[in-house]
Structure formats: C-alpha cells, structure tokens
Design a protein around this nucleic acid. Structure first.
Ligand SMILES: [Zn+2]
Ligand SMILES: [Zn+2]
Ligand SMILES: [Zn+2]
Ligand SMILES: [Zn+2]
Lengths: 145, 145
DNA sequence: GCTTGCTTCTACAGCTACTGTAGATGTTAT
DNA sequence: ATAACATCTACAGTAGCTGTAGAAGCAAGC
C-alpha cells in the first residue's frame, strides 16, 4: 500500500488533486491507516495515471468519468469510448480553427502597425472596430484547452 | 443616455457581464437615474465594444485593462500595445501547437481502433499508457482559450 | 387608479479543474 | 524528546462570466 505522497510523485499529480478526485467520485474512497492516512494500491495508481493522461489529452472530467466506467466493463462494445474520443477530436479541430482565425487577425494587426503614437496604432484601431477584421474570421464562440 | 439593456443589445453582451465589468473596474461606474438605473453614453458603448472585441480575440481582461489605459493616452508611443498583442499571438501559437499534438494523438488512437470489445479498444489502451503515444507529443502544459 | 409585464436593481451561488492556505495531527529521524 | 516533514480537514481563490432570488422601477392598457 502506498501513501498519497507516493502516489502523487508516481503520477506527477498534486496531493490536493488526488483528494479532489476522490471528493468528486472519480477515484474511490481510499481506505485509511490507523492514523487516518489514505492508503492506495497499484490499481489506484493506474486509474489515476489514466485520468491524468486523459486530462493531458484535453478530455474533461465528465468524459473521463464515462471512459473509466466503460473500462470497468471490458466485455462491452467499445463504440461509446470511440464516440467520446471522436467528440474530443471534434472539439480540438474546432479550437484549432478558431485559434488560427485569431492568429491571422493578430498577425495582421501587428504587421500593419508601423510603430509611433497610440493614436495611430493599428492594434488599438483594429480592436476598436471589428469591421477592420477579415470577413468570417473569429466569429466568437468558446475555445479553451 | 442609454439603459443597460440597450447597451447590452448594442454590443451583444449580457447585462450581468456589463455589471461585472463595472465591478472589476474595467468599465467606469455608470451614473444613475432617479430610479437608480445605470445610464450610459456612446463612449461607454465604444469602450465595451472594444472590450468584447478584444475578448473575442482571446485577450485576457488584464491585458485589456492595460490596452484601455494605453488608448486613453493617445500621445504615448504604441510599443506597449504592440507588445501585448505579440504576447497574445505567442500564446495563440503555443496553443495551436499543443492542440495539434493532441489532435494527432486522438486521430491515431481513433484510427487504430477496429471496434469490438472495450478490452481490445485502442482508445482505452492508449489512454492507459502514455508510452503508446508519439514521442515528444502532448507533453502537457496549459492550454485554454 | 390599478394591474400586468417587462426591465433593472442587489447579492450571492455556480461553472471547470484545480491550487493554495491555515491549523491540527501523525510519522520519522536524530 | 524534539525537529522536520507528511498528511489531515475545511475553506478560499483562480478566470470570466452566467444564473437565480427577491425587491423595486417603469410603461401601457383598462
Ligand atoms: Zn502599434
Ligand atoms: Zn474582429
Ligand atoms: Zn475502440
Ligand atoms: Zn500520451
């Protein structure tokens, strides 16, 4: 059995984050030692590594919760898991699209600015007026991870 | 003078968001009517449009605060504004890089999965083991907007 | 004058996924 | 025994809003 600190080092995850995952029910309630410390087995480390890896790939905790409950039933068909991954890929693609649009606008405004006074600054000017942006670029909507 | 609802419609911004911006000091305290309603002038609408547009381009409110105080001093040199925009562009580029790495991994795991049972699912398998990812891809770090 | 319905007011809770902190214990090493 | 460190609980804070409750203002129709 391992201490929470050991698990944290093994998975490169903060101690508080482990407790948080337990609190929201994505990790099971760890059994306690005599002195009330949480005790972990290798399976818990594996589960946490899974969570952290999925987080690195941008999966939200809700999706990870679903993926974990799927992987707890290894005989089920894997369509649901694949669908979650596809959803994640879609999101990544949408975010990349949006970020590329933002990047284009930012590059444009920076390139056009010849330096000088704020009153002549293209950056300030374009930010004041979306009409000066490329058409159909950056029409808002979420972005994130 | 305009009501908060009018300003909200004019800038496609929720009423609460306007009050929030006032609260954090990025919009000035609006003068009030006899009945305690906030009253806005055209300059406030312009300032809010600037804020919303900068938000759409991914600038955090702290940067926007700086940009606004720069644009209030039109005779200053514009280096500082350009630097903020460059910083924003850098961030966008880093996020795009990272998202492309995630996208590659997601595509790989989805493509490799031939369907079937969870126990054979490549998605679950790869999520369980970062060793099966491409080297030097998705080495964590922040992402967001 | 009165009711209906809309807007606005304040104040606060909630969202995501953690992270940091305080103050109290438990454990280990010297 | 004492110091140093790990862990415990509980709560606040991060970014940028968004939603809600309950009270009050305001305009139109009757
Ligand atoms: Zn400039
Ligand atoms: Zn624009
Ligand atoms: Zn599969
Ligand atoms: Zn990986």
């Amino acid at each position: 059995m391992y201490t929470i600190g050991h698990v944290a080092r093994a998975t490169d995850c903060k101690v508080q984050t482990i407790r948080y995952y337990e609190q929201i029910g994505i990790l099971p309630q760890a059994p306690r030692s005599e002195g009330n410390r949480r005790l972990y087995a290798q399976a818990d480390i594996d589960r946490l590594a899974f969570i952290r890896h999925a987080r690195e790939l941008g999966f939200p905790l809700d999706s990870i919760r679903d993926l974990l409950s799927l992987s707890d039933n290894p005989d089920q068909p894997c369509d649901a898991a694949d669908a979650i991954a596809c959803r994640q890929l879609d999101q990544a693609n949408r975010r990349i699209e949006r970020l590329n649009a933002l990047k284009r606008e930012l590059e444009r405004m920076i390139k056009q600015c010849r330096g000088g006074k704020i009153s002549d600054c293209r950056v300030i000017e374009v930010l004041s007026d979306h009409g000066q942006c490329l058409k159909d670029d950056h029409q808002m909507a979420e972005a994130s991870p």
